[in-house]
Design a binder for these strands. Structure first.
Lengths: 151, 151
DNA sequence: AGCATGTATCTCGCTGAGCGAGAGAATACG
DNA sequence: CGTATTCTCTCGCTCAGCGAGATACATGCT
């Protein structure tokens, strides 16, 4: 494994990192009575809230790869947990807006907070130029995966 | 978002990349009649096979965070799909060895093959030194997550 | 206007992944 | 030996997510 050529080593690292992050998320979710899907939904909702975007059940379901029935169930679940609230869109009354509650933000902090601080701290060992390289690298890899996903 | 400080931008990139890889895997799995768990199991089994490690249901379940009942179901499923085979360990007859079939290897190639080639190709745009930086960076981040996971 | 078509969400019934509890079979250890 | 331990599997259950379709609102066409 140590004698592996660099590109393959990087591929395995990317996969390994994904696995670690997934497991971290799954464990956090389980500890808070959530399912992995709930956590992914929460992340999506918090991102949208910070960006000022309106999220509807349809958009959320699409982002998570769920059909409408599953999405309704997911939203019901999050609402029952007091993490989000439904609100009819006054402009188009077919739509429902999903609003995140304070509790959801706190939960998000609990999840990310510690880990982000640790990650940022570890980045301190890298120079400005090195972080820039890492950024370009990650952007490039993300784009490749996103493109592959779109077939 | 463009004005974001580099460390946070990197954190978001890591998360985004994880999400993309997850979705890619989930879509591949669905297209092949597998569940995300099955794919994760397959990856684990193929890694072990390449490393020459023996995998038992117990080890597999532990790696995926399943209990024994769930693991039995998973192994049944993979066996029914003709991806693995059970074989009693002759040394310790309580144990069962999980052997990957040819089909599983082909499936793995189908999943990784294209994506890996694309990723490696994109790495071609980076110099030797830059890839080394990316590697150190990913190793550092992986270690942080693994440490955080171990509490 | 009026009617067809499209869009957003929800309801119903069902399948099956994964859990808890515990049984059964083989091994280790006093 | 017999008792504890380890590994896997069985049983019964819960609930996330699917397919099909209902409902309600919106929009385009003539």
């Amino acid at each position: 494994m140590e004698s592996e050529r660099t590109p393959m080593r990087l591929v395995h690292l990317l996969r390994g990192l994904t696995v670690e992050l997934d497991l971290f998320g799954a464990e956090f979710a389980a500890r808070n009575g959530l399912h992995p899907t709930d956590l992914r939904a929460l992340i999506h909702l918090l991102d949208a809230a910070r960006a000022g975007t309106v999220v509807t059940p349809g958009r959320l379901g699409e982002a998570l790869g769920l059909n409408s029935a599953g999405t309704t169930g997911l939203v019901d679940r999050l609402e029952r947990l007091g993490l989000i609230r439904r609100e009819r869109d006054p402009g188009d009354r077919r739509k429902v807006r999903l609003l995140v509650e304070e509790r959801a933000i706190e939960l998000g902090e609990g999840f990310f907070g510690g880990l982000i601080a640790d990650l940022v701290a570890a980045m301190g060992a890298f120079g400005e130029a090195e972080l820039a390289v890492a950024q370009r690298f990650l952007e490039s890899m993300t784009e490749v995966v996103a493109t592959a996903r779109a077939e």
